[in-house]
Design a protein around this nucleic acid. Structure first.
Lengths: 359, 359
DNA sequence: TTGTAGGCGTTATCAA
DNA sequence: TTGATAACGCCTACAA
């Protein structure tokens, strides 16, 4: 029986024989004929006599000394690591952001521990436990739902925590999101201006924050323009390639067929394009199309795609920067919500239509 | 002036005020009225009297005690983390593998520190330094070239190190690769059997191990069949979407046009398909096509794609498992090279041609 | 079964 | 400026 709280990680492998021993401060001190206190000062940029400095430098080099961050962290009560908790590790959106975070964090001396919870609430909690157990100095996370007791508790304790992409209800934690509504409004405006009155929209799962906002912004823009948004033009694609593919097929089959389609994330954009190609639908001659996040595709596809793009690197860096600030004890403006702008890149996938009576 | 060896990481943020203090063994001991040694035993599954066990359990729960892995690692000389060093963090191939490694490692109690070196040799070295400085217990890495002194040195020191995807010259380190030649041979056989005699191949950069092997296997199969492989049918696509796109366009323009094209990685497959769609080339009626690693696409695209797939999860798990074995001191068979099979998934993208005289 | 004590590599406090 | 010395949280003989 293994006791000790809910879920202690399994015992790791028995350790093997030690290889080349690693030099410690003590070794350096011995070789340089100085005390470990002096060596420590030297290592951390303190003042030492030039003569000693030289001796230490050579000793460090001779021994190949490397500071032991574990020991240091033990003393300073910091692990020099931050946790990153995301819904999934496949899809390109999160991995790209994580990649940027990773390199930013490393440039600041921090290591990242990345966990994904496969969109499972239960896994989210246990991975959060794992991170806390690892004594990470801060956490960047993507909530799965608007209410998330575990995350809320962390925030309430003033544990450095920054959310991104999705928000918690009540704005109780520092967060970084993009202007999802704004992006969709821009798309709506663009399509309306180009004469489209019947536009299909491929949306994500209702439960996901971004999906709701993207649809809401789009619907609001239509409403303000006095146009209806019939349910048959709103198709859910589950944020997957297959879902986008299916959704596009269904829109193509719908009568009257919309004159344009707007896919609201990368995977669904990909799937939708595949469907168009299979069906031999010409863009924008037969159908206009607006995608999401697929700037790379946009450059490759002809005609170039009109897409909404998110500033992936900014999201990553803003989140990490805010986190580091909190970790440094600067809680100014807490809880803070940064809203980054999304951009509409106008390509050639939206045709100009003569205005005529709406369907 | 910051002294102390080549490249110490920058000083991290000054620490902020301590928040909710975290319970330690000492606290648990005090609350339970026992010694810390007993608590430690309890935590690690040792024998304690039932009565004490109960007291400890409640104390642990009350205090929300979590073991400090840093302190434990300091004592046991292990950091419970493994480093993962890969060429890039964009592309789906490496990130998928890393994702599997991450979850496997976590299931064994290990944390992973992921670094990418953006295909830059210099960055590879410095990230390796970073990992070693973090005292990771082992490293999984993808070399950038056949000779890599830093990696070789590590292997020579018997530091737990497993390479994957690409090999080092001389087989001096544990490695996990797929049977690249075999995959290409299977493609060649399939195409030949279906009557294709003039097949374009879109290859990766010469400098990358897998690119060389994939081309070699294909060329060998042709040679053994007594067929030529004219240079104009071998187009380099740099392993990128844009490159695959360009390469396919060039093959389509080539005269006589090949009857089939084989793209040798995921990104190039994507680009190539885009090019086909743009040009309105029907697959397989106008041109047969074989892709790589795009099983997900394969399901979405119609007609379904014939593709070579790599066992991404096996690569990840095999590498991590071998690494853990080495970390446990089991050096049996060192240096070992695991060669995993790739698979040819036959879809409907290769047409059956009546055999006739070669071009 | 339980407790005592020493040490892992660092940092930090004070004297010297 | 330098150097003993005491933590940091945990593990582990060894002794009780």
């Amino acid at each position: 029986v293994r006791p000790g709280g809910a879920a202690l990680p399994p015992r790791p492998c028995p350790r093997g024989p030690r290889r080349t021993p690693i030099a410690t401060i003590k070794d350096v001190a011995a070789l340089a004929g100085l005390s470990i206190a002096t060596v420590s000062k030297y290592i951390n940029g303190g003042n030492v006599l030039p003569a000693n400095r030289a001796a230490l430098a050579s000793a460090v080099k001779r021994l190949g000394y490397r500071r032991n961050d574990l020991a240091r962290g033990l003393k300073t009560n910091r692990s020099l690591s931050i946790g990153v908790l995301i819904p999934r590790l496949d899809g390109v959106f999160f991995t790209t952001i994580v990649s940027h975070m990773e390199s930013f964090a490393q440039s600041r001396g921090y290591t990242t521990i990345v966990c994904d919870y496969r969109e499972e609430p239960r896994l989210l909690e246990s991975k959060l436990e794992f991170l806390v157990g690892r004594h990470v100095d801060g956490i960047v996370a993507v909530p799965i739902a608007a209410r998330q007791p575990a995350l809320a508790a962390l925030a309430a304790r003033r544990f450095p925590l920054v959310l991104f992409d999705r928000l918690l209800a009540g704005g109780i934690a520092d967060s970084v999101v993009i202007d999802n509504e704004g992006g969709s409004r821009a798309v709506a405006a663009h399509l309306l201006q180009r004469g489209h009155r019947s536009v299909g929209i491929i949306v994500g799962p209702r439960s996901i924050y971004t999906a709701g906002r993207r649809l809401a912004g789009y619907a609001a823009a239509l409403r303000e323009a006095g146009l209806p948004l019939p349910q048959r033009l709103v198709v859910t694609g589950d944020y997957t390639v297959a879902g986008g593919h299916r959704a596009m097929l269904s829109l193509l089959a719908s009568r009257p067929r919309p004159t344009a389609v707007y896919a609201t994330n990368y995977e669904m954009t990909l799937g939708a394009i595949m469907a168009l190609n299979e069906k031999g639908v010409r863009v924008p001659a037969d159908l206009s199309f607006v995608g999401f996040d697929s700037l790379e595709l946009s450059a490759v596809v002809k005609p170039s795609l009109t897409v909404v793009t998110q500033p992936l690197e900014s999201i990553a860096v803003s989140s990490a920067e805010l986190l580091l600030r909190r970790m440094a004890g600067d809680w100014e403006g807490f809880p803070r919500t940064l809203r980054l702008a999304s951009e509409l890149h106008v390509g050639q996938s939206v045709a100009l239509r003569k205005a005529k009576a709406a369907a």
